[in-house]
C-alpha cells in the first residue's frame, strides 16, 4: 500500500517513468542464479526446508518468495561426503532456467556434453580444475525436458558463523551444476548479490 502510494507519487512527480518501473520489476522477477543461491543457503540452515526441497522440488521454493517456474519437474541432487553429482543435457541444453536463470556458455558446448557423461572425473579436472577423491562416487545426471536438475552443494567448512544471506553469496552457478564445489568463506568479500536484487532493495 505504502509502496504503491510512493511509486504513484514518484511517477506523478516525473522522477520515475512507467517504463523504468516496468524494467525494474522485470529485472527483479527474472530468474537468476541468485534464486539458486538463496535456495541452497536456506537448505543449509533449515533441515526441514532441505527435506521439502528434496521431496517436492520446485514447489518448496515458494517459501522463499521465489516463483517456482513451470518447466517439468525439478530434481535436487544433494552432494554428500560419499557422492558428488554433476548435471548435463546431452540432447540439447535442458536446465531449470525458468528458476535458476540461463545456463553458462560451456553448458551448451559439445566438448562438455559428450565428454562429461563418458569421463566425468577427467572432464571435471581438466575443464574445471575440480578433482573428486577416488573413493567418492560420481553421478552424472543427463537431463531431459521433463526432469531438470540442480545440485545442492555441501555446506563449506568454516561457515558456522555466517548468516543465511552471507551463505547465499558463496554459492556459484558452477556449484549448482556440480562442476565446482569449493565455496570458501574467504570469497564472501569479493562477491555481491546480483544487480537485480540490489535494485529490488533500493
Amino acid at each position: 500500500m505504502v509502496l504503491r502510494a510512493v511509486t504513484a507519487a514518484l511517477i506523478a512527480k516525473g522522477s520515475l517513468s512507467g517504463a523504468e518501473l516496468r524494467a525494474r520489476q522485470e529485472a527483479v522477477a527474472r530468474p537468476s542464479v541468485w534464486n539458486g543461491a538463496r535456495i541452497v543457503a536456506r537448505a543449509w540452515v533449515d533441515p526441514d526446508f532441505r527435506q521439502r526441497l528434496l521431496t517436492i522440488g520446485r514447489e518448496a521454493v515458494r517459501e522463499l518468495g521465489i516463483p517456482p517456474g513451470r518447466l517439468g519437474k525439478l530434481g535436487v541432487l544433494e552432494n554428500t561426503e560419499a557422492v558428488h553429482h554433476v548435471v548435463v543435457c546431452t540432447l540439447c541444453s535442458c536446465y531449470p532456467y525458468d528458476l535458476l536463470g540461463d545456463t553458462p556458455w560451456w553448458y551448451k558446448q559439445e566438448s562438455y556434453r559428450m565428454r562429461v557423461v563418458a569421463d566425468p572425473r577427467g572432464t571435471l579436472t581438466e575443464m574445471f580444475g575440480l578433482t573428486i577423491a577416488p573413493e567418492r562416487e560420481v553421478r552424472v545426471y543427463d537431463s531431459t525436458s521433463d526432469m531438470r536438475y540442480m545440485v545442492l552443494p555441501q555446506r563449506p567448512p568454516g561457515t558456522e558463523g555466517l548468516s543465511e544471506e552471507e551463505l547465499a553469496k558463496l554459492v556459484t552457478q558452477e556449484s549448482l551444476i556440480g562442476v565446482a564445489e569449493d565455496l570458501p568463506p574467504s570469497r564472501l568479500h569479493t562477491r555481491r548479490a546480483p544487480e537485480a536484487v540490489r535494485l529490488a532493495v533500493l
Binding site: V117, D119, P120, E137, R139, V140, T144, D146
Partner: peptide
C-alpha cells in the same frame, strides 16, 4: 503427456566400455 517417466542408473564403465566406478542417471 508422455508415458511414465523413470530415472534409471547405469554404470559408466559398462555404457562406454572403459574403467571406472562412476554412475550415469537418465530419465
Amino acid at each position: 503427456h508422455y508415458p511414465f517417466l523413470y530415472t534409471v542408473m547405469f554404470e559408466i564403465g559398462q555404457v562406454f566400455d572403459r574403467p571406472g566406478n562412476e554412475k550415469l542417471c537418465l530419465d
